[in-house]
Computed example of a mutant assay.
Amino acid sequence: MIEGVRIRLNPWQQAAVALGSAVGALLDPRRADLIAALGETTGKPAFERVLERMKQSPEGRVVLLEKPRVISSEVGHAWDMPANTFGAAYARFMGSRNFSPDDRPPVRFMDTDELAYVAMRAREVHDFWHTLFGLPTNLIGESALKVIEFEQMHLPMALLSVFGGTARFNEKQRTLFFKHYFPWAIRAGMQCTDLMCVYYEKHFHEDLEEVRRKWGIVPAPAALK
């Protein structure tokens, strides 16, 4: 079950929320609630396609059935995993930045429980993807991950985030991004497995490099980090 109150919007209300969220997010990119609202109000068709792909995938079906959540009470054991494991790498990523898995805003604008879960899952696996692709959380790293997210899910919000992020680059960042990060992210997002169909929590105990090979993930070149 996805916590929080869900709000049903008619098309005009949905457009109004999307526009208001877009303006607010441009004015203050730190507003995660506005970014989340924009993603939900513009992303329903994309989330519907992701849902159908998950239903066609054996592992994706288990995710939909069990509905795991990336919250402290369910992923805290990652902090106790051996250093070489995917779980330990995720714990290091979170701990080094003082991030909490409980900080994601709730889903409010999805019509069904299934779509609400898919939207929440997409939001919550974001830090798993940072870990797997070896991307930093600076403006360039986040923009590169949004390219991968667009390749994987075709969410309009991901593409808008790339435009918004690159607009804030200075000249040196823009050159670095478009010369190195952008082409790498396009290739990385296209050649890896369908990442929304992965039950990440069941792979915490596996070696990080092995899961990367298994899922076709090519981390960001070390020189770019």
Rank of each mutant, 00 (worst) to 15 (best):
I2Y: 04
G4A: 04
V5P: 01
I7K: 00
I7N: 00
P11A: 05
P11T: 06
W12I: 11
W12K: 10
Q14F: 05
Q14T: 13
Q14H: 03
A16E: 13
A18T: 09
A18W: 06
A22P: 01
A22E: 08
G24F: 04
L26A: 14
L26N: 12
L27M: 11
D28T: 11
D28Y: 11
D28N: 15
R30H: 13
R30M: 12
R31H: 12
A32D: 15
A32Y: 14
L34W: 13
L34Y: 12
I35R: 15
G39E: 07
T41E: 06
P45C: 07
F47T: 04
E52R: 14
S57Q: 00
S57D: 12
E59H: 03
G60D: 04
G60T: 06
R61M: 02
L65M: 10
L65C: 08
E66W: 02
V70T: 09
S73D: 06
E74P: 02
V75G: 04
A78C: 11
N84W: 00
G87I: 01
F93A: 05
G95S: 07
S96H: 09
S100C: 02
D103S: 14
R104P: 03
R104D: 08
P105H: 09
P106W: 04
P106A: 05
M110T: 06
T112N: 04
T112W: 00
D113M: 05
D113W: 04
E114L: 01
E114M: 03
L115K: 05
Y117I: 03
A119L: 00
M120A: 13
M120N: 15
A122W: 08
A122R: 12
R123Q: 14
R123C: 08
V125E: 09
W129M: 15
H130A: 09
H130P: 01
G134S: 06
L135W: 09
N138I: 06
L139K: 14
S143C: 15
S143I: 09
I148N: 07
Q152Y: 03
H154I: 09
H154L: 14
L155A: 11
L155G: 03
P156W: 06
A158V: 08
A158R: 06
S161K: 08
V162C: 12
R168G: 10
F169L: 13
F169E: 14
N170C: 14
E171T: 14
Q173R: 02
R174M: 15
R174A: 15
F178A: 10
F178K: 13
P183M: 02
P183G: 10
W184T: 10
A185D: 11
I186S: 02
R187V: 11
A188S: 08
M190G: 02
M196C: 00
M196F: 12
Y199E: 07
Y200W: 13
Y200N: 01
E201K: 03
E201S: 03
E201R: 02
D207C: 05
E209G: 00
E209F: 02
E209Y: 01
E210C: 02
K214V: 02
V218D: 13
V218P: 02
P219L: 05
A220L: 15
A220R: 09
P221R: 03
P221A: 02
P221D: 01
A223D: 12
A223S: 13
L224H: 13
